[in-house]
Amino acid sequence: MNSGRLTVENACKKYGRQEVLQDVSLSVFAGERVALLGHNGAGKTTLIKLILGLTGLTGGTIDVFGHPTGSDGARRTAAYLPETVNFHGMLTGREQLRFFARLAGESGKQVDGVLEKVGLASAADKRIGTYSKGMRQRIGLAQVLMRRPQLALLDEPTSGLDPISRRTFYDLVDELAQAGTAVFVSSHALTELEARTDRIHIMASGKLVAAGSLDALRKEAGLPTRITVKAVHEKADAVAAKLGGERVNCSSVQLTFGADEKLDRISAIAGLEKGLVEDVDLAPPSLEDLYRHFTAKGDGSDHIN
């Protein structure tokens, strides 16, 4: 087994007779940021719990950087941010983190630094019961950072965070990854994952339906790229005729084409005579488009709408 990565091979999980995971295989390497997407009930949390050894596999194997799941070695390797964190309201943030440091067998020197990093320095001595949801989430993140783990498993870490906190959150994730941590994040927040992950896995009803970098997923999906050309007043028809696009309103023309035609289309627009085009907007298929594409294809029969 390779000790520099997390390897999941043909993982299967049944709860009673319900097959929650079917034949899931993936790996996450040191220093990589990998996202796990999927609808509610797709099995994301279950997969993360299996990796942590919190629940047992019904088939397949999982290897955590050379350690079997649930072993002491695996638990030393992986840090976890649960989907719903509720710490004891009577303790202060600092006390809670000191406790986690001692459990992890560390001295607790890093506690202050980590609290600072997640922006809780000023609230460190207040009771967690008085914290906002976002602040509690940050305590959860702080205990992950504090452990400087080889593998970080983050289950919907940005739910409940405001846009600025989300950005800081991903900055911290980048920092972790740069320090060599393999980061595995499950999320529904597609736009933020788009820029912040190296590879993406998409799950639907317990099956892995797509995996790869954003570019690779775009290629595989073959979804059209869209260019919206904003024409100068009363020139929309002329532009539409020359570029072969479709007029969508009085001033805009939309071109839809496969990814391989992109450069040709752009040069065609650039080659138009002056005084026709006011602005151009290019939109490659977004992660949301890809997500829809793959989850629809992958038989999302029990998808909740």
Partner: peptide
Amino acid sequence: ERGSLPLLLTYPT
């Protein structure tokens, strides 16, 4: 019930 048990159990103890 609080959800702190799974987290506790992922620590090396």
